[in-house]
Structure formats: C-alpha cells, structure tokens
Write a protein that binds this DNA or RNA. Structure first.
Ligand SMILES: [Mn+2]
Ligand SMILES: [Mn+2]
Ligand SMILES: [Zn+2]
Ligand SMILES: [Zn+2]
Lengths: 136, 136
DNA sequence: TATTCAATGCAACCCAACTGCAAAGTTTAC
DNA sequence: GTAAACTTTGCAGTTGGGTTGCATTGAATA
C-alpha cells in the first residue's frame, strides 16, 4: 500500500481509483487547484465525480477550500497535522497577474480582537498582489 | 443640495435619481449589501441598472466589495477618508448563522511578512463565526 | 450467490454575474 | 431653441461555476 492510499485510509475515505488519482494530482501541484483544473488534468473523469470527490476530501479534511475572490473555489492539501481548526488557519496569496493561488502555510492567522460577543470559528484570509514570478 | 448628493459629486459621479436612491439605501444599512438586497429594497429598479450602479460606486470608491464566501458579493460604504489602498483595508465578519456580513472598520489589517519578492496590493480578510446577535 | 450500499457517469438545473442593444434622458454645439 | 453627441436606464438574454436527480456500475456484506 503506497503513501497516497494510506493517506486516504487514515482519513477514513475509501481509496477508490478515482480518489487516488485526484489525491495524486494534488500532490503534484504547488498551487491551489480548481474543479476546472482537475477536469483538465484528469480529462477522462466526469465533472460531477470530481466535484463530489472534492467535497468528500474537504469534509474529511484532506483538503481545505479557498475563496480567492476570482469567482472560482480553489482547494489545497491540508498539512499532515491539520484539523481545519483556528490554529491551523493560514493566509493565502492570490496573484492578480497569473491568477494562481498559494497557501502561505508558514503564516498563521493572528488572534483578532473582535467586537463584544462575536465568536470566531473560521476565516478566509486572502492577500492579493503579485507573486514572485510575476513581480519583476 | 443634500448630503447624499454632494457625496456623489465629491467622487465625480453624476447624481442621477437611481444613484441617489442606491446611496441612500446604503446609508440606511448596518450590514453589507448584496445586489439581491438592493433588488428587494428598491423593487422598482432594474437589476442590471443596480448592478452597474454598484460597479460605478466601486470604481469611484464610494463602496468596496467583500467576498464573504457565501457565493454572493457584498458591498459596503467606504469611510470618508478611504482610498481603497492598503492602509484603508479592514477585516470583515461573516456570521454563519444569520448570513450577515459586517465591516470591522476599526480593525485594520496588519503588515504581513510575505515570501521573497511577493508584492501585496489588496486583501480580502473574512472572519467567520457568530455575530453578537446570534451568539447567546 | 443474492442482497445491499457506495461510487460513478450523464444530463440536466440553478443562479449570480455579466452583456448587447434599443429607448429614454441629459449635455453640448451651433 | 434645436440638433447632435453622449450617458444612463430597462429589457432580455448569455455565461459559467456550482449543484443535483437518477440510472448504472462496482464493491462489500450476508
Ligand atoms: Mn491553504
Ligand atoms: Mn468593509
Ligand atoms: Zn503570479
Ligand atoms: Zn448573526
């Protein structure tokens, strides 16, 4: 049993052929992945299967979703230890030139002083600008 | 000439009847406004006119847009001094219960140490959880 | 082997965002 | 004041990401 397969089993997700391919695809990317990216990368696969695979992966905390403001939801692999709780949150960077979105996993979200009685459970923090490639 | 009208002129936006009504509507809200909200609030107005009014207001920095992850873009009035630059950015709060989105105008975005050569131009920072009303 | 449940593929649907175009309204030129 | 030029508005339609119903296939269980 290879690494990809055991990752799925660890998260109690049945390792079907499709799911192994999708997870494999994620490990090969250095940027966040959209449903369209998956459709292009795994062209033999059906869109709704890929969609449901993403939802399954998200629920199982194999990936987390990113709303980068491009109108397309992106997904990226969670870190080994990630439980998608407050302490696991990090910033994301969306390049307005190449449209790529990256996890800044080393940049954790600071504690934020909310107004009285507000309760923070989640966050979607997206920095926009130029990535190293696009910023000459 | 009333206050609403002069606000538009200050930003070089021709104060048509429609625009005055939309800006009036904004001043009456304590939460961020969606296109659908405007359609409901100003039912006699056409959707695409309202849509284009929002775009005009956004370009003229009368309002700023918020991607709160609900799948619907929200808009809120800019502060008097706002130029929609880095120093004007603030956090937003999206209540996952009542679905309302609020500007936390007193909470400015801190400086963030980006990876080498990355350049920050904008940000969309959304905290999710329960607002004071929904958090008993 | 028969039964049951989960995953997949296909074909739609939904809906927010956006656009083309003609009509109405406003500004400018003469 | 009137005609031409430009802007705004209203209507109707398109686009595209996201989502769902349902039949089929495949895997697990009895
Ligand atoms: Mn991430
Ligand atoms: Mn705001
Ligand atoms: Zn880039
Ligand atoms: Zn609330």
């Amino acid at each position: 049993m290879n690494n990809i397969e055991s990752q799925l089993k660890d998260k109690s997700v049945k390792p079907t052929a499709m799911r192994l391919l999708v997870l494999q695809y994620f490990t090969e990317q250095s940027k966040a992945v959209s449903l369209k990216d998956l459709e292009n990368g795994l062209s033999y696969a059906d869109k709704s299967t890929l969609f449901r695979t993403l939802k399954t992966f998200e629920e199982s905390k194999i990936v987390h979703s990113i709303e980068d403001g491009s109108g397309v939801t992106k997904y990226a692999l969670c870190l080994e230890s990630c439980n998608c709780e407050l302490q696991d949150l990090h910033y994301h960077f969306h390049c307005t030139n190449c449209e790529n979105t990256f996890c800044l996993t080393t940049l954790n979200i600071p504690t934020i002083e909310l107004p009285t009685n507000f309760k923070m459970n989640q966050a979607n923090m997206v920095i926009k600008g130029l990535c190293a490639n696009c910023n000459e």
